[in-house]
Computed example of a mutant assay.
Amino acid sequence: MRKAFVIVSTLSLAAFALQFIFAAVGAFTEPAGDDAYTLHSITGMAVIPGLTLLTILCAVLAKAPGRIVGLAALPLGLVVVQALLAGLANGSTDAAGASTPFGLTIAGLHALNGIIAVHVVVSVHQAARKLANPPAADAIPVSVRAGEPA
């Protein structure tokens, strides 16, 4: 089950990386429209939450420490924050439908929250890899200094 934890956390990391690509596709689509962010929306509202739930399940079944299980669950909360920030940013327009400074600030927080989520997913992936490949009990740490043969 620990290998499954690594695989699912890798897929989750890939999905988060694709989110940034899909956001860029939406931002640079001309003419811009609501459908420009379809891939970004589907990935953020369905794929990532599904993979996060699967990652939590794998962490529990792999008997990961509680800290790692909690870390694996954190992206789910960050996705909820993402949806709230996106809704608030989209709703913060003037009478003509143009972006406001407040809305743009919230949109910036949406991007920042996405970066934080990626860092969390990287940490989960690293923890999963450590759990799946623990150091050998009889391994002796060796330090090698520059210029000395190994």
Rank of each mutant, 00 (worst) to 15 (best):
G50M: 09
D35K: 14
T55I: 04
A59T: 03
K63G: 05
L57N: 04
K63Y: 04
E30H: 04
V60L: 12
S41D: 01
I21K: 02
D35Y: 09
F20L: 06
A62V: 03
V60W: 15
R67P: 02
G50R: 05
A23W: 03
L57Q: 04
D35E: 14
I21H: 01
F28R: 14
A24Q: 08
A27G: 14
T43E: 14
L39S: 15
T29P: 04
K63S: 13
E30I: 12
A32Y: 14
T38C: 03
R67I: 10
Y37E: 04
D34P: 00
T43I: 06
F16I: 05
A46Y: 15
V47L: 14
V47M: 09
F20M: 11
V47W: 03
A64H: 09
A62G: 13
A27M: 11
D35F: 09
A32N: 06
Y37R: 07
A36P: 04
R67S: 15
F16L: 11
T43Y: 05
E30L: 14
K63E: 15
M45T: 05
A17S: 09
G44Q: 04
I42P: 02
D34L: 12
I56P: 08
T43W: 05
S41H: 12
Q19P: 02
G44V: 00
L39T: 08
V47H: 05
K63Q: 14
G50A: 14
T29G: 06
A23S: 13
P65W: 12
Q19R: 00
A46Q: 03
D34E: 11
D35G: 02
L18R: 01
H40T: 07
V47C: 04
R67Y: 11
G50P: 04
H40A: 10
G33P: 02
L39W: 15
L39H: 12
I56R: 11
T43C: 09
A46M: 11
S41N: 07
F16C: 13
H40W: 14
Q19I: 01
Y37P: 01
G50Q: 03
L61V: 12
Y37Q: 08
L61Y: 01
G44S: 04
L54Y: 10
I56K: 10
A32G: 10
K63I: 02
A36Q: 08
L18E: 01
A36E: 10
L53E: 05
Q19C: 02
M45Y: 10
T52I: 10
V25T: 07
G26F: 00
P31H: 01
A59Y: 02
L54A: 15
